[in-house]
Amino acid sequence: MPIAALVTGASRGLGLELIRQLGRGERPPRYLFAACREPEGTGATELKNFAKCFSNVKIVKMDVDDLNSIQETAEQIQEVLKDNGLNLLINNAGINFGGDLNGITPEIMMKTYTTNVIAPVMVTKALLPSLMQAAQLSGEHGFSSEKAAVINMSSIMASMEMFNIQNGKAYSYRVSKASLFKEESVQGILKVLARLSEQDNGLFLDWRGQRLPW
């Protein structure tokens, strides 16, 4: 496991389960940052209760739609890490308003694009110095999540080949992050992360490690 990891959108769903399994693993990160928009809100209660039991879990406030918030959090993380660097960034925060083509609006499109596309790039940019520092300190060759890696969580719906307009209402996606299979899927995600190599750079993989078409 990496020395330091950050998960965005960590107050619920897959983000929360990632924090749980990383935090209580056999080789947990020394620093496990759980980023969420409202750490003091009722929506972060489960995360806060978990963090009380694991001293390596540090909850940080980050609104991924706010550039100032991203930069402030990046600076806070760097202060904690000092010279260690950040080994693993998991861009998990995302939104899906659902609905079909008849109900879509420009506002919904822009909000979705801002959170799901622009935000991961801006978060990665803000934390790039810490990621590069970790890569230099690792002494390892090639690509791995223990050196320095950025993982962008997506959906099977991102595959144009596998997802067409006929199932565009996306009802299944809206409940997927809170489904009964959440724990199993996160176990698979962590197994995939552990065996990533340079050959996997830029690939679209599912939680089983199987390559998906774009």
Score class of each variant (00 low, 15 high):
residue 175 V to E: 13
residue 181 F to S: 14
residue 150 V to E: 09
residue 137 L to K: 12
residue 163 F to I: 11
residue 165 I to A: 10
residue 110 M to D: 05
residue 107 E to A: 06
residue 128 L to W: 05
residue 105 T to L: 04
residue 148 A to T: 05
residue 159 S to Y: 05
residue 147 K to G: 05
residue 116 N to D: 01
residue 104 I to F: 06
residue 140 E to V: 08
residue 145 S to M: 04
residue 107 E to P: 00
residue 128 L to Y: 06
residue 132 M to H: 14
residue 158 A to S: 13
residue 162 M to C: 13
residue 133 Q to Y: 06
residue 163 F to Y: 12
residue 163 F to V: 09
residue 170 A to W: 08
residue 105 T to N: 03
residue 160 M to T: 15
residue 116 N to M: 02
residue 128 L to M: 06
residue 144 S to H: 08
residue 103 G to I: 04
residue 110 M to L: 11
residue 153 M to P: 00
residue 175 V to D: 12
residue 137 L to H: 09
residue 178 A to T: 15
residue 155 S to K: 04
residue 112 T to V: 02
residue 118 I to P: 01
residue 175 V to P: 11
residue 141 H to Q: 12
residue 145 S to G: 07
residue 147 K to I: 06
residue 156 I to V: 07
residue 157 M to Q: 14
residue 132 M to P: 10
residue 116 N to P: 00
residue 149 A to L: 04
residue 171 Y to I: 15
residue 145 S to A: 11
residue 164 N to Y: 12
residue 151 I to K: 00
residue 118 I to T: 08
residue 177 K to S: 14
residue 119 A to S: 05
residue 121 V to H: 06
residue 176 S to L: 06
residue 159 S to T: 05
residue 149 A to C: 08
residue 173 Y to Q: 11
residue 106 P to F: 01
residue 166 Q to E: 09
residue 157 M to N: 13
residue 110 M to A: 10
residue 160 M to Y: 12
residue 114 T to K: 07
residue 113 Y to L: 06
residue 109 M to A: 10
residue 150 V to W: 08
residue 182 K to T: 15
residue 156 I to K: 04
residue 152 N to A: 04
residue 154 S to M: 02
residue 125 K to H: 06
residue 170 A to C: 09
residue 122 M to S: 03
residue 125 K to Q: 04
residue 116 N to T: 02
residue 171 Y to K: 15
residue 173 Y to R: 10
residue 147 K to L: 06
residue 178 A to N: 15
residue 109 M to E: 09
residue 136 Q to I: 14
residue 124 T to L: 05
residue 179 S to T: 05
residue 122 M to I: 00
residue 121 V to L: 10
residue 115 T to E: 08
residue 164 N to I: 12
residue 137 L to A: 11
residue 121 V to A: 10
residue 103 G to H: 07
residue 154 S to H: 00
residue 162 M to P: 01
residue 168 G to S: 10
residue 126 A to G: 04
residue 135 A to K: 07
residue 171 Y to M: 15
residue 171 Y to Q: 15
residue 143 F to Y: 12
residue 133 Q to M: 12
residue 132 M to A: 13
residue 136 Q to L: 11
residue 161 E to L: 09
residue 133 Q to W: 05
residue 133 Q to A: 12
residue 133 Q to L: 12
residue 119 A to L: 00
